[in-house]
Amino acid sequence: MFEARLGQATILKKILDAIKDLLNEGTFDCSDSGIQLQAMDNSHVSLVSLTLRSDGFDKFRCDRNLSMGMNLGSMAKILKCANNEDNVTIKAQDNADTVTIMFESANQEKVSDYGMKLMNLDQEHLGIPETDYSCVVRMPAMEFARICRDLAQFSESVVICCTKEGVKFSASGDVGTANIKLAQTGNVDKEEEAVIIEMQEPVTLTFACRYLNAFTKATPLSTQVQLSMCADVPLVVEYRINELGHIRYYLAPKIED
């Protein structure tokens, strides 16, 4: 028996919004410790890794490890039927071929349940090695989303250059060139507005705007985003989900032909 309950459906809606542009389907691996999903997009350029800890749920029960392959478009349709403030419960029997998603209004006067067929997905799990990143940047998630959106107008690629002074995002194309520099915040009054850089070595890497923009669909989940970079390894873009877990996106850099 698997049962996981969250106080507000809005969190689950935001999580789904953050992954459904990159993935058509995904396998939710459920265990004692929580729910994990790891999946590459169809082109094998980026990877989504979602972790939801069991202690972040209002109720969590997982008697046996369970892998639930879900069509994320179908799940999005079901979640549209929930009000943001509804409680949401995800339930499945062991070895079941369906999952039940139940919504309850705060006053318990409206209860709805939706059944969805599970899928058997070929899982391509990637082993992600521990990496000492040369630069780790923490910055407001809204600012990162704004920069990615703005620079996508100029080029398909954005160059991220990080030094200890700051981080620079650049793009150039037919329209012209664009450079956006963010300095490290001097005095951190409000942590959620800070730009913080931990640098071992400066790094310059090129990434596809299209994917960065897809990652920023997670912006409603977190006030800050963390970018971890190292020469010749994929970028990690991490959004923490308050008291529940995190979503990490990995993106292979573009390399000179």
Binding site: M40, S43, H44, V45, S46, L47, E124, H125, L126, G127, I128, P129, S157, T206, A208, D232, V233, P234, Y250, L251, A252, P253, K254, I255, E256, D257
Partner: peptide
Amino acid sequence: TPIQNDLTEYFSLV
């Protein structure tokens, strides 16, 4: 123009 690399160039399938 730079070309897009594949993630599996960096991370191995397990």
